[in-house]
Design a protein around this nucleic acid. Structure first.
Lengths: 191, 191
DNA sequence: TTTTTTGTTGATTGACGAGTCAATAAACTT
DNA sequence: AAGTTTATTGACTCGTCAATCAACAAAAAA
């Protein structure tokens, strides 16, 4: 009993299911069958809409990146001062939506994926460039020439906190993460 | 033409081959066949000595952790002041042996492995505790109560730099990494 | 010298999973 | 009404891979 206009619905269902499954498996060792089942359809349909496993993964990654970007952009929109811009970036990065184990695990695995799949690498590069630009733009007026080095470090620190979160046995605590990052920043700004 | 006492030789060959293959594949998607071939033996022999793929992976991980620990311990041995201890840890972490793409990629993948395989998680926990203790011990006399927070941040920062290295298109530059970490430290110590 | 232990592999098994295909059916077009 | 497009799946193919096994060989022990 096929209803028309299913494509976008099926696709988003598959993308969400993919993130969930990667999160729960903690690896990319997830079969199309598992994903399709969680999304409530047959394997064949998943292939029909995406053409292959790799494309499903890429779509899922694109989805996470898009969500994150939107959140950052939204938070930046209302930030007036450089300090507020930095805070906005941090809050978005560790918001309840983004800083969930599932999502963090997916991120980690996308990093791994990016080592092999050029498409994934490109996506990640886009994200990294954007983050870099945002941070740099906020830092420049505050510390001038040192901004480059601090941007680098802050980016690495964010990734590091994510990485550790993926393995932490405790429940996610975005607040604590933000506090830590802000402590780092104030140490750098104070100088 | 079997020579006796092959076991340790074969085992180390397999461990090295595993790290190489994971590094070059950029993922844990490496077959026992590939590993065995690179180590110059048959698949069956690999199974014979290790019993299974998982144990090969764990042995490889143990090997990397052991090398790293030994290097840190060696560097710490000759460090007199707390500052020197910190530097020793950083230098060891980003030494030419440890901070190679191959090894870094293996690390990243072990992080992923640790999400699923309890044995891997345990190994990683040991490493993290040790690193934490070492840094904390050096920082305490310098900044007292703030040492805990800074230790946390420094650990995450190290991991983050590793993570980014795995994806960096440029060749590894341990020196630059150490400089960056030291810049962070001096900012924190100055306060 | 017979037996046991250690080293070694080619061939095989058995499972699993990605991707394809043919078939079925509802909706929309002409 | 006939034809086309969209949705959907069960069944199948084909490849891959972990793990096992039987068999062979050399050294050591008996």
């Amino acid at each position: 009993m096929p209803k028309l206009g299913m494509e976008p619905i099926r696709k988003t269902a598959l993308v969400k299911a993919t993130i969930t499954e990667i999160g729960r498996a903690g690896s990319l060792d997830v079969t199309v069958g598992q994903i399709a089942k969680r999304a409530g359809m047959s394997t064949a349909l998943a292939h029909h809409y995406f053409g292959g496993k790799e494309q499903i993964f890429l779509a899922a990654m694109r989805h996470i990146l898009t969500l994150y970007s939107a959140e950052v952009r939204g938070a930046l929109a209302t930030a007036a001062t450089p300090e507020a811009r930095l805070e906005a970036i941090l809050l978005a990065s560790f918001s309840a939506t983004n800083f969930r184990r599932e999502v963090v695990s997916a991120w980690l695995n996308f990093y791994v994926l990016a080592q092999t799949v050029p498409g994934a690498r490109r996506l990640l590069a886009v994200y990294q460039r954007r983050l870099h630009a945002n941070i740099l733009h906020a830092l420049r007026p505050l510390i001038g020439a040192r901004a480059d080095a601090v941007t680098e470090a802050l980016g690495a620190l964010i990734d590091g906190v994510y990485l550790r979160e993926a393995l932490s046995p405790r429940p996610s605590d975005g607040k604590a993460a933000v506090r830590m990052l802000q402590a780092y920043l104030s140490a750098e700004l104070r100088n």
